[in-house]
Nucleic acid binder design. Structure first.
Lengths: 106, 106
DNA sequence: TTGACATGCAGGTATTTACCTGCATATTAT
DNA sequence: ATAATATGCAGGTAAATACCTGCATGTCAA
């Protein structure tokens, strides 16, 4: 997994919207997705290409159509390898800050 | 929580590195953080400002120093409100794709 | 007080990015 | 075959971004 590509891909609201749309109905065509986006089809394609490069979306060609499917695995990996690290130390990290805010004179 | 700011903030490798550094040792000064970064202090400041705007980092001034603390709460919220959504449907989403890959003729 | 140190602030620039338009190709339906 | 449909490909542009340098301010220690 290329963590940087995944984070970069998630860093744009349009691409998160695309993932949301695919979550509502998986396997949509480019045209279907564009109907909900308010931008040129070619722009949407570029966003989808980035999602695909990050392995967050997989595509299948069916005739002249291109179907898009979410791949939730990279999200899971990002969570496991990155978010949980902070999650685990959550309380102690907050404790550090609280301690500092309460004053240094002790 | 401003989800967009959080995702944007996480979308840069330098800023993720800063969070990693703070996770190793919370409450570091700007100078300490810069020693591990290979860029001008002013550039690091800009990254830290974005992390602070996303509420991922909180700061406390102590004398002429500025201490930086991770705030793990927004990460937790991003996970709760966004990642878990896909997590929950993970298996069914993968099933959709597998089904499509196995051929259309049935 | 004066010098060293930690950080703040104000631009400037090169790269990346997010959008667009125009045209080409491939597939389906009549 | 021909027209309509779905997508691919090739630039082009304006805005955002990630750096930088130079200088100002505030704090500590001798």
């Amino acid at each position: 997994m290329d963590a940087d590509k995944v984070f970069k891909a998630l860093g744009d609201p349009t691409r998160r919207r695309l993932l949301d749309l695919l979550c509502e109905q998986n396997g949509q065509t480019l045209g279907q997705l564009c109907e909900n986006l308010d931008m040129a089809r070619q722009s949407a394609t570029q966003h989808l290409d980035l999602l695909e490069a990050a392995n967050l979306v997989s595509t299948v060609k069916r005739g002249r159509e291109k179907l898009h499917f979410i791949n939730p695995v990279p999200l899971h990996e990002v969570y496991e390898r990155w978010v949980r690290k902070f999650e685990r130390e959550r309380l102690s990290l907050l404790h550090d800050l609280k301690q500092e805010l309460e004053g240094d004179d002790q």
